[in-house]
Every structure is written in structure tokens, then in C-alpha cells.
């Protein structure tokens, strides 16, 4: 097992899949000659050439649609959308073409495309470069949504997404590309559905995904050491479909739930998980589930305001203490 950075894990998945199958191609802005904004496609242009590693014009709707059209004929494009904020321009094609094609053609056509995009608040990037948009994608029938919290998942989820015959949106995080972690040396496919138990516990379940898994893990550590509360951390790497069984199983064990999301609360991941808890195991609850989320504001530029808008592990700790009547 090698320790590699998350961007290297993504690069490795691209490289292995492109070496295996000439129909796997990748495209996006500055991904070729320049090697990718986050280096996720570094070295691929030199290896596979411009026909398969395509530097696109700044036309998110256009090149996303082009990738989808190519996928109808069995090409497997991996589309990088430089920032999830720009994905709005590509959503028409993702939602109206890729996600619906199988259904509206009565199963005749499919769009085995992968869309990768970096989201999240990074370092004072301001209102138009800091969005978290997973909630938009996870409500679309016909589209899978996964989101890695570590290099192993980043590698394995991309590998599975490329092989899957459904369109998959992969939600990455701008702050996590340099995160190090162990990735198996041999080929590895992470499941596209389900959830991981990132830490076992008995008193409360902390649900996280992508960056918020790390807040939850840190919070669990503090809760254990300082308050004697045993928290279980569930990593929801699949946002669509959500792992109903996994959510039910953990809450039925701990009887308490806190959901941590970097996104704003309305119509969000937390709201959806609470709905699932209500539907699956309401009578197992000892307390009303709680959401930890960002403020409902366009992301401010000012450092102090930015920090105030986005939650972190301390907010998770506070939410848990409140659940236990300790705050």
C-alpha cells in the first residue's frame, strides 16, 4: 500500500483505465498540455495524445454535451469541470441528456459518462468559486452521485464510475487534492453504492461525506477523549442513491444522529438523511436529529466571515453535546 495524494489517486485511475480501454477519453479546460488545474490528469496528454486527452474551449455546456453524445456510441468520457460553480452551465446537458437518455429511449441508449468537478469553500475564493452543489445533483433520476473523502475512495470510485454504464457525477473538494492516504497497489474498485463505517461507536452517529467526514472523525476523537461519548462516523460516499440500509442500521444502534454538511441546509443532504431516518427508523430515535451546515449566504470573501459561514469539527462537537444536554 502506497501513501499517495488524492490528485495522484485520480490520475492513476485515469491512466489505468485509458491504458486498458482505447474508448476511455478525458476532456476539460486545461487538462491536457497544462496537466489539469489540480494535476488530476498530469502526464496523460503526453501518453495518450490530443485525440483522447482533450483540452476544451471554455464551453461547459458544449463539451459536456459532446462527451454525452460520444458516450451514446460506447465512448467512455471523463469530463473535468474545473469548478463545480461552472457546472451550472453544463447541467442542461447532464440532466436533460445524460440522466434521461436511457429512460426516454426506452432503454435503447445510455450515457456512460463520468463528470468530475471540484467544489467546496477553499481559501477566500468568493461567492462564485466556493459553492457546494451536491444537493442539486443528488435529486436527479438517472444520475449517480459519489464523493470521495480520501485517496483510496477517489481512486476506486473513479475506476468504478468509468466502468459503470450509468452517468456518474463525482464531487471532489478543492481543499483535498493534496491530502495523503493509502491506496492499494493492486487494482481496486470502490462500490458506487453504500456507505463506509469510518469509525465505530455506540452513542451517536455522525454522518459526513467528502470533507465533512474529517470534521466528524476529529469531533469523534474529542467526544471520546473529553466527554466519554462514543461516536460512530458514517462516510456517505454515495449521495445518490443514499444508503438507506446503512443509515438505518447505524441509527438503530446509536439512537442519535448528527449530519454534517459543508453546504447550506435548505433542500440539502442533511434534510434528505433526516427524512430517511424518519421513514426507516423513527422509533429508534432518542433525540431529534441535528444538522450542522453552513450559513445561507453567498460565500463571503473576508477571511473571518468565510470562516463564520462554514462549519467545522467544533460545530459537530457542539451539536452532539447539545443532543446529550451537555451544552
Amino acid at each position: 500500500m502506497a501513501q499517495i495524494m488524492l490528485w495522484e489517486a485520480i490520475q492513476r485511475a485515469h491512466d489505468e483505465e485509458m491504458a486498458r480501454d482505447p474508448m476511455v477519453i478525458c476532456m476539460g479546460e486545461d487538462i491536457g498540455v497544462a496537466g489539469g488545474t489540480y494535476k488530476a490528469t498530469k502526464g496523460l496528454f503526453e501518453k495518450y495524445g490530443p485525440l483522447r486527452v482533450m483540452d476544451t474551449p471554455i464551453s461547459e455546456g458544449g463539451f459536456t454535451g459532446l462527451a454525452i453524445g460520444a458516450s451514446f456510441l460506447g465512448v467512455r468520457p471523463i469530463v473535468e469541470i474545473m469548478s463545480v460553480n461552472f457546472a451550472w452551465l453544463a447541467m442542461d446537458q447532464m440532466f436533460n441528456s445524460a440522466a434521461k437518455i436511457r429512460y426516454m429511449s426506452g432503454g435503447q441508449l445510455e450515457a456512460p459518462c463520468v463528470f468530475r468537478s471540484a467544489g467546496g469553500a477553499a481559501h477566500q475564493l468568493g461567492a462564485q468559486h466556493s459553492a457546494r452543489m451536491e444537493k442539486v445533483f443528488m435529486g436527479i433520476a438517472g444520475l449517480r452521485v459519489v464523493t470521495p473523502s480520501n485517496p483510496k475512495q477517489a481512486y476506486g470510485l473513479l475506476k468504478s464510475a468509468i466502468r459503470s454504464n450509468d452517468p456518474v457525477f463525482i464531487n471532489e473538494h478543492e481543499l483535498m487534492y493534496n491530502m495523503k492516504g493509502e491506496v492499494p497497489d493492486s487494482e481496486y474498485f470502490h462500490p458506487l453504492e453504500g456507505s463506509d463505517i469510518a469509525r465505530s461507536g455506540t452513542d451517536v452517529t455522525l454522518f459526513g461525506y467528502n470533507i465533512s467526514v474529517h470534521w466528524c472523525l476529529k469531533a469523534a476523537e474529542i467526544l471520546d477523549k473529553q466527554y466519554g461519548i462514543s461516536a460512530e462516523v458514517i462516510d456517505l460516499y454515495s449521495l445518490s442513491p443514499l444508503d438507506r440500509a446503512g443509515i438505518k442500521q447505524s441509527v438503530s444502534k446509536t439512537h442519535r444522529a448528527v449530519i454534517a454538511e459543508e453546504d447550506e441546509a435548505p433542500v440539502g443532504v442533511g434534510a434528505e438523511i433526516i427524512a430517511i431516518i424518519n421513514e426507516e427508523c423513527f422509533f429508534e430515535l432518542d433525540a431529534a436529529p441535528v444538522r450542522v451546515h453552513s450559513a445561507l449566504v453567498p460565500q463571503p470573501y473576508n477571511h473571518t466571515l468565510e470562516k463564520a459561514a462554514i462549519p467545522d469539527h467544533e460545530d459537530v462537537v457542539k451539536a452532539v453535546l447539545k443532543l446529550f444536554g451537555k451544552a
Binding site: 458544449g62 454535451g65 459532446l66 453524445g69 458516450s71 456510441l73 465512448v75
Partner: peptide, 23 residues
């Protein structure tokens, strides 16, 4: 390869089909 209801939607899909033919 279909009829689509979003005006203009098929333009890039057509180019993508052409890209697949090229590959």
C-alpha cells in the same frame, strides 16, 4: 439517435457522436 425537446440540445450531442466516429 433521437428527438430532443430542449431547443439546441442536440448540437453538442451530434458533435459528440462525430467524435465517437472519429475515435
Amino acid at each position: 439517435m433521437g428527438g430532443y425537446a430542449l431547443v439546441g440540445g442536440p448540437f453538442p450531442l451530434a458533435a459528440g457522436i462525430a467524435k465517437a466516429i472519429q475515435l
